[in-house]
């Protein structure tokens, strides 16, 4: 899975949006880094000093075998071991909704990192709203392929919910984007209502 500068590989649009928010040559922690796609991209194209945490054995093995610095561990237990401001960016890419205590994880993220980047699925997306309204069942889609009983996503929220949490925590949103169903990204800015209807996903760059 190793990619090289002469062999660039397209990464998921939301990962690309995250990567675009990161300054080259910085220190980055990818929390819940999966098989390391983003870290690998950041190492090769942004020369970042990247680290990861991942709970799945397969994910960690793939990362370390590809030369990435990744620790197998439980995010909610292990983030506390990192010192304050150890990283320029801490990334929670499609991870927050799978946490038991999302707010605590956010707090730790902003303690460890000078900036935090969060991407999450938007439960307020119009197709999901209609799905629930017409089928009366928990939405299942290409992006959210799980049934209610086997989903790892135990804490869904909408873009509006997330913005409210950020405000409640006293954090500043430096940049915010949403991805619509054509894969186009748009700035959320002050149009939270619009983003909340048409965004399949939201991506936020946060600082203290």
């Amino acid at each position: 899975m190793m990619m090289t500068p002469d062999n660039p590989k397209a990464i998921r649009v939301d990962l690309q949006l995250i990567a675009d928010m990161i300054e080259p040559g910085t220190r980055v922690l990818d929390v819940g880094c999966g098989n390391g796609t983003l870290l690998d991209y950041l190492w090769h194209f942004k020369q970042v000093d990247g680290r990861g945490i991942e709970i799945s054995t397969q994910g960690v093995q793939a990362c370390v075998s590809a030369g990435l610095s990744v620790v197998q561990g439980d995010v909610e237990r292990d983030l506390k071991n990192y010192p304050d401001d150890a990283f320029d960016y801490v990334i929670l890419s499609q991870t927050l909704q799978a946490m038991w205590e999302p707010r605590d994880v956010m707090t730790e993220m902003m303690r460890i990192g000078k900036r935090g980047i969060v991407s999450l699925p938007n439960f307020g997306y119009w197709r999901l709203r209609l799905y629930l309204m017409f089928h009366g069942r928990m939405p299942v889609s290409e992006n959210l392929p799980y049934q209610w009983y086997n989903t790892p996503n135990i804490h869904f929220c909408t873009i509006r919910d997330f913005v409210a949490l950020v405000k409640d925590m006293g954090l500043t949103i430096e940049r915010s984007l949403f991805l619509d169903d054509t894969g186009t990204s748009r700035t959320i800015g002050t149009s939270v209502g619009l983003a909340n209807w048409f965004g399949e996903q939201g991506v936020f760059l946060l600082r203290k």
Binding site: D49, R51, T57, V60, Q61, C63, L68, V70, V71, Y82
Partner: peptide, 21 residues
């Protein structure tokens, strides 16, 4: 082994850790 990893993390070291089944 994980205690070593936690200490390395606390020192902001470059560390990978895998538990092999």
């Amino acid at each position: 082994n994980r205690e070593i990893v936690h200490a390395l993390n606390a020192g902001a070291a470059n560390v990978s850790f895998v538990e092999i089944d």
